[in-house]
């Protein structure tokens, strides 16, 4: 226990378009979380361009690591370990973080701790208030939509996942269809606040009792709706369309999350990943969890999107369990959370 209080972990995250480094003490205390976003760089391309992202990462990585230690007031030799996102993500981008972490671990003579990006998103909540097990996590991001059951630290069991698009991906694709700038999720969120869910759109419940998701049908329905309206030269009310689309996504996310909680009998529901920034999702989950007396944890906005503090937090428990990697560690674009 005492050891856990003292543990100082440097986290590094470069899986997509954020170069980030952070120092976390005792698994819960955020000492620094430096994030260099490339959003502006990629906006003109309408999405993340992997080669452009990798080039930016390599330029920034050392400065960001340096800043993270400076802001934390921690000397590099005081660190207990270096934790890094091994995957999933863009392989070229991941490689920058992995190469830096390996060089750092070797240079400082510290353990190297590989972390799964989604474990990181889940542990973002741990930085606000310690997780209490057992729990269910609803992970909704650009690449993932999953329900995860956790009995304890580092124990991940998958209850369900998307069979096609991730929720964030659906947000981004629909936003593009509506000619909204990248990234689309926040744009739809904002627009939906001004509209009414008046367009009828499908909800994919799949088999009764299923905790899996599917969003590609919904995306196609929006595509058809826009296409037909264009052909008939009818005007589309974009705010209403955004509200309708968001409503369809949230209905499924909220109901399946509640079903997972009921099925497992846990008292805590965690929200994790970039889409947990969605204001509608926050409001609706809060309401439902209050009704059902479930302890809902939602990370603050700055911890919802990719950041290294969440990697350091998750890495702390990998470190305490002795899950180290050797210097042959490689990035894995498709790393599974559950082996």
């Amino acid at each position: 226990m005492n050891m856990q209080r003292e543990t100082l972990i440097l986290g590094i995250e470069t899986s997509c378009d954020e170069t980030s480094a952070a120092v976390v003490r005792g698994g819960t205390e955020l000492l620094s979380n430096v994030i260099s976003s490339q959003m502006d760089v990629h906006r003109k391309f309408g999405g993340v361009v992997p080669e452009v992202a990798s080039r930016r990462h390599v330029e920034r990585i050392t400065i960001i690591v340096q800043k993270a230690l400076e802001e934390a007031g921690v000397g590099r030799n005081e660190l207990d370990a270096v934790a890094v996102t091994q995957g999933p993500g863009l392989v070229g981008a991941l490689l920058i973080g992995v190469s830096a972490a390996k060089a750092l671990a070797f240079s400082l003579g510290k353990p190297l701790v590989p972390v799964h990006h989604i474990a990181g998103h889940i542990y973002a909540n741990h930085l606000i208030k310690p997780l209490s097990f057992p729990l269910v996590a609803l992970v909704v991001s650009g690449g993932h939509t999953e329900l995860i059951y956790m009995k304890g630290h580092n124990q991940f069991e998958r209850l369900g996942k998307t069979r096609d698009d991730a929720a964030g991906e659906a947000f981004d694709k629909v936003a593009r269809l509506m000619k909204l700038p990248y990234p689309g999720g926040p744009q739809i969120d904002r627009l939906a606040l001004e509209g009414k869910p008046s367009y009828p759109l499908p909800r994919a419940w799949l088999e009764s009792d299923s905790l899996d998701f599917s969003f590609s049908g919904l995306k196609s329905a929006v595509l058809n709706l826009v296409h037909n309206a264009n052909q008939r030269k009818e005007e589309i009310h974009y705010a209403d369309l955004a509200a309708s689309f968001q409503d369809a996504v949230l209905d499924v996310l909220v109901e399946k999350a509640m079903l997972a909680v009921k099925k497992t009998g846990v008292n805590q529901l965690l929200l994790a990943g970039g889409v947990s920034a969605n204001s509608g999702l926050r409001v609706r989950l809060s309401k439902r969890c209050k009704e059902e007396k479930i302890d809902l944890r939602i990370p603050p906005l700055e911890l919802c999107t990719d950041n290294a503090a969440m990697i350091a937090a998750a890495g702390t428990y990998q470190f305490l369990d002795g899950h180290y990697a050797d210097l042959t560690l490689n990035a894995d674009a498709n790393l599974p959370l559950i082996g």
């Binding site: 990798s54 990585i61 050392t62 690591v65 830096a100 750092l104 070797f106």
Partner: peptide, 19 residues
């Protein structure tokens, strides 16, 4: 090779900073 160059540069400059 873009990826190759980055592995070397990232490794070298991280080591340089750390040491």
């Amino acid at each position: 090779s873009y990826t190759g160059i980055r592995i070397g540069v990232t490794t070298a400059k991280t080591m340089a900073w750390a040491r």
